[in-house]
Simulated scan of single mutants.
Amino acid sequence: MSLYRTELRRLAKRRFTRYMSLLGLLVLAAVVVGVFFTNQKIDADQLARAERQADQQHQEQVRWSEQERVACEQAKAAGTPNDGRYPDDCSVITAPTRDQIDAQWFLPSTFEFRKTFDETLVPFAAILALVGFVVGASFVGAEWSTGGMMNLLLWRPNRLTVLFNKLAALLTGMLAVTLPAAVLWFAGFWAVATFRGSTEKMTSGAWQSFALTGLRGVALVLVITTIGFALASLGRHTAMALGGVVALMVVGQFGLGILLAMANVRFAEAWLLPTYAIAWMTKKVTLQDYQVCNANYYGECKPATLDITWQQSSVLFSVGVVVILGAALWAMRRRDIS
């Protein structure tokens, strides 16, 4: 019997795998339903109502500015100290023009597929990556803790072959969950945009961009799943992976973030892993340092910036997978099975 098919069947039969996958899919469904009920389709009546509210807001601003200008002139004529409430020249107190008050501010939330869908792929990848990490860690961790790995190696003594087949079965199972979920995610938000927003201006380029972002999301899920599997194999227990990631997030990320902030390190977010995960999904994250001023020819002061790109993220994730998985393979080959 094929070891790969055996491991794939073992993965599918595990109740923990089924429950975690179902929980992840239910969370994704809850996100789609939540977005559906918190958005509305904009019609002509709502646009007209928003224009009226913008007009009303403009009129209120005009009345307020006139009252403040009169009060400023009275205070100036009376010689009353204003304690910085009014400017020296009362004529500068003017209301904003009508075109500065956008009617879009008064419209309800609406889901525009082309503008918004790209943002939804980040939580999609994050939720399934968490599921993959926990399932991957428990899949091999349970084998070590229950003694199943030792029994398996009596049947197939080639240690690396056993571990690679387990990993291949795990990644196949995650693909079997992630790819249909991605299709349903696209379809669900297309339905949201159809009934609660807009699907206009969708071009082949936009579809291609969404598809590439979705593929990067699938790759991120597989990478995180592999890391969870390798950590649990390295520590020979599920708790090794779960404890390691908790320690990394609490000590290595939050603690490091606080330390960098206290030390006033420039672009402190560049040292944090979530920044690279977001950059991988969105193609680029621009960090800003407001302590540094770059003046331009117009006298405008802009903060210094640092771009984190998806290429840099890919290098970091590749090195991480190679190091952690390589350590797990080395430990599997060198240590005694007991």
Rank of each mutant, 00 (worst) to 15 (best):
A247G: 05
G141Q: 05
A327H: 09
M332D: 11
V218E: 01
T275N: 08
A263H: 00
R334V: 03
P157R: 11
Q253H: 02
F37W: 13
M149D: 02
A187G: 09
G235N: 07
S314K: 08
K283W: 14
L306G: 11
Y290G: 06
R52D: 09
G148Y: 06
N294I: 09
A50I: 04
G228T: 04
L287W: 04
G217I: 03
A182R: 04
N264T: 13
S198D: 01
F254H: 07
A126V: 13
L256E: 04
V183I: 13
L152D: 07
L154E: 03
A268G: 09
L170T: 06
R236Y: 07
H237T: 13
Q311R: 15
T146D: 03
L152G: 10
L152W: 00
V319K: 01
L8A: 02
V223S: 01
G79V: 08
H237I: 03
A78R: 07
Q208E: 13
Q291H: 15
K76C: 08
D336M: 08
E112F: 08
A30Y: 06
R335T: 02
C90A: 00
A261W: 00
L154Q: 14
R49L: 15
P123K: 04
T97I: 07
G214E: 09
R236T: 05
Q208Y: 15
E68I: 03
M249P: 11
R85L: 04
T305W: 13
R10A: 11
T275E: 06
G132C: 02
V319Q: 11
F164I: 13
S314L: 12
T110N: 12
L153V: 07
H58I: 09
Q56P: 07
L128W: 04
T282Y: 14
A30T: 10
L256M: 10
K284M: 14
A50C: 06
A232M: 08
P303Y: 05
W185P: 05
G214S: 10
G243F: 08
V321K: 08
K201V: 03
F124A: 02
T203P: 02
Q312E: 15
L3D: 01
L171C: 01
T6I: 14
D43W: 07
A279E: 07
A129I: 06
L3Y: 03
T226D: 02
P157D: 09
V32F: 08
A193F: 02
Q53A: 10
T286E: 11
T226V: 06
N264Y: 12
E60K: 14
L8T: 05
T6S: 13
